[in-house]
Simulated scan of single mutants.
Amino acid sequence: MEALIVVENLYLDLGKFKLQGVSLEARKGEYLVVLGPSGAGKTLLLECIAGLRKPVGGRIIVDGVDVTGYPPEKRGLAYVPQDYALWPHMTVYNNIAYPLKCKKFSEAEIRRRVRWVTKELEISHLLHRKPGTLSGGEKQRVALARALVWNPKAILLDEPTAALDPALKSSAWKLLKKLHSKLKFTAIHVTHDLAEAATLAEKAAFMYNGVIVKQGRLDSVLATPEASIYLGDANVYRGKVIQRRGGETVVDVYGTKIVTVADAMPGEETVLMLRPEDILLLEKPAPTSARNTLKVTVEELEPRGPLMLVHVKHGDLKLKAYVTKSSSEHLKLKPGKQLYASFKAAAVKRVA
């Protein structure tokens, strides 16, 4: 896939806070999630890409064109702010139709597109309502419809589920995932929610103190020291349920079968978390009640006070495990050392 949005060495100076040489790339049709703590600069980055803020250095390229100096309306990007920014005096129909009217679409084409997008988001029954009468989840769907209706080059989503009740977030993630799977739009989505990132990200980036620390597959992004400071050392994976048997669920994670007691149905996608303290590293397999035992290779060792954080790999699956320093010495741990990682099915928690 070719790059659709490229951010090159971007600088923004707001006095007390700066974006410091940010580089980022979203390929055509890709769902990129930028994860990081509040105050990391995620919203400022989106506003620069959207054209709402002017950087003091660097470039923003959209579909091969340098748009750094372009106004927002000339960039071909849809921006969904955290508060959705719906016009309170307009009906849902007119809110969704607004970008089409600005772009001089015919009335017949406006009606056709609004019918199409509201059917996709299951909000056709809301067209004559005003935003003040809508729930948080309904407002989010209207904002997404307004972004999608004119077929932009990409959609920029700023914490799109932050205003939703916890019970609604999971359904909102499923909606975004379904829409992206069907419509194949390019998205840059910023969030501080790890489960949200793990559910949606085809590629992830971690932002910390105005800098993109790393981008790539989510597990490699989470392995950075900066991500560990914010998120801890938890192992988080997205996988697909392949079997349900006798109270246990088997999930395919990067080609490795992981057994959990989490409730999920075959074919369902799920997000799993495994704490590093729940993984036992052994020189050889031992008879235990653990339902998961994997042959692994040590990649890296990181001191964590009295503990050692051990990065290991099994095929494409990466894990982080804690051992005491004395255990590290006993096992003679070093990069390249082969071991066995063992953990119970009950230790593998479902987070989304």
Rank of each mutant, 00 (worst) to 15 (best):
H89S: 11
F105D: 03
R75C: 00
S135V: 09
Y79C: 05
D83W: 04
G210K: 00
V80E: 08
V149I: 11
R141M: 09
L77C: 01
A201M: 10
E122W: 11
S181Y: 14
A201N: 10
V92G: 09
S124H: 03
I212G: 00
V92K: 08
F185S: 03
K153S: 01
L148V: 07
R111K: 15
T118K: 09
K182Y: 07
T191N: 14
L148Q: 06
A163I: 02
S170M: 14
P160T: 08
G210V: 00
L168Y: 06
L194V: 14
R75F: 01
I155T: 09
D165C: 00
H89A: 08
T186I: 04
F105G: 01
C102L: 14
E159F: 03
T199L: 15
M207Q: 01
E120T: 13
D158A: 01
T199V: 15
R111L: 14
L121R: 02
P152C: 02
A147R: 04
G76K: 02
L100D: 04
V211A: 00
E196A: 14
L194C: 13
L183K: 04
L168P: 04
Y93P: 04
V80P: 06
P160F: 04
F206L: 11
R111E: 15
K203Q: 13
A78C: 07
V213Y: 04
K177A: 13
N94D: 15
K119P: 11
Y93K: 11
Y208H: 06
L168S: 08
K174W: 12
A172K: 07
I96P: 03
L126F: 08
T199I: 15
L176F: 11
A145S: 14
W173H: 14
S181V: 12
I155M: 05
A85G: 05
E202R: 08
Y84G: 05
V114Q: 07
P160A: 09
Y79L: 10
F206A: 06
S181T: 14
K174I: 11
R111G: 14
N151M: 00
W173A: 11
L144N: 06
A201V: 12
R111D: 14
K119R: 15
